[in-house]
Write a protein that binds this DNA or RNA. Sequence first.
DNA 1: CGGCGAGAAATTATAGATAATTTTGAATTT
DNA 2: AAATTCAAAATTATCTATAATTTCTCGCCG
Lengths: 207, 207
Amino acid sequence: MTKSKDDTIAARIGKALADRIIAGTLEPGSRLGQDHIAEEFGASHVPVREAFRRLEAQGLVVSEPRRGVRVASFSMADVKEVAEMRAALEVLALRHAAPHLTPAILDAAEEATRAGDKAGDVQAWEDANRNFHRLILNPCGMPRLLASIADLHMASARFLFSGWRAEWDAPTDRDHRAILDALRAGKLDVAASVLARHVQWVGRKPR
Amino acid sequence: MTKSKDDTIAARIGKALADRIIAGTLEPGSRLGQDHIAEEFGASHVPVREAFRRLEAQGLVVSEPRRGVRVASFSMADVKEVAEMRAALEVLALRHAAPHLTPAILDAAEEATRAGDKAGDVQAWEDANRNFHRLILNPCGMPRLLASIADLHMASARFLFSGWRAEWDAPTDRDHRAILDALRAGKLDVAASVLARHVQWVGRKPR
DNA sequence: CGGCGAGAAATTATAGATAATTTTGAATTT
DNA sequence: AAATTCAAAATTATCTATAATTTCTCGCCG
């Protein structure tokens, strides 16, 4: 029953590569040879090429016709761009999700925030962070919007894991609580503006 | 020199199919058999499958593993969702493009508006409309944002051509002029709010 | 008369093979 | 020594073939 998504080999390879790119295991700019990857996964290169197309659409790789595909590199400007897009779209999602937010959902989001506080490494913190955003935004019931946000979130996470930002501080988790408080108080505008600022935190220059 | 984009067969097929889906030649829900399409383009089904992946990422087709792909159908809710996403993202793009807008660009945008007025059919009007938006947004210099907007614009155009809206009235072109006036007067907030409203016009119920 | 299999036909997904293009590298020339 | 050319090697893109899955059809049974 856990086979509706990564059923095809292409989907499985695509997901595996995405994970590595986000985690930074595959470095920006590095070449992805289709035969090499096919061999590693014990498959032919056809599903590998199909996986490439999806990754390309997600902005995780760049492909030059007949010259191969490489892991997408990103600049500070790219990071800021993604952060601003997230701010715009997540605010939109929140405005539509708000009427459907139940106390149970808000409690779950608070629990996710606590998990983030207890996180020992960046990976665990990011998992909790993603969970928080997913919980409060999913009820908007706009699938295309949520898919776009998920892609942008991946790009943000890449940056977070890239070492540019070795530190991850408390302010974001304070933001989470401020968002929850505002939502509980019915102050949607406040929640939205905190969310917008919060999302762009990752786009700030480190060090 | 016109070969950096649709160089591969897969890209060419993808673009051709996208055009047909947007124009409505391929109806929502209709099945796309890989062999059938491959034969039509005088190719094998492998590049066809790669084209499918890109179309899937753009939301133009939906693919169920081992069950084929069909032209994505869309509901009124989908149209509204796309319109709201466009509003959010185009406003963001406009805010970043504004500082780089030159009189020459604004004149070109006005010319595009006139072309829209003179348009005899929906197709010509949509071409002019897309041109207007492209002209005033491209200078934002945010490639990922512009790519997302382009995808959303395709979805909007699909709706426009779908027959749900056989009429296309003047108000949009009045909006175009209001946006240009506001930009020329340096009233960015006004331009942004008119743009947001303008984009969502297509999401209104026809008849 | 309507559901229910079993087998056939059609279709998708993957593999293996081939053609075409780019990259590499060494020999040659200036 | 640097630049250039040209052939070999590597890699991508596509095609043809095969395996696996779904859909269809038709006869059978309730």
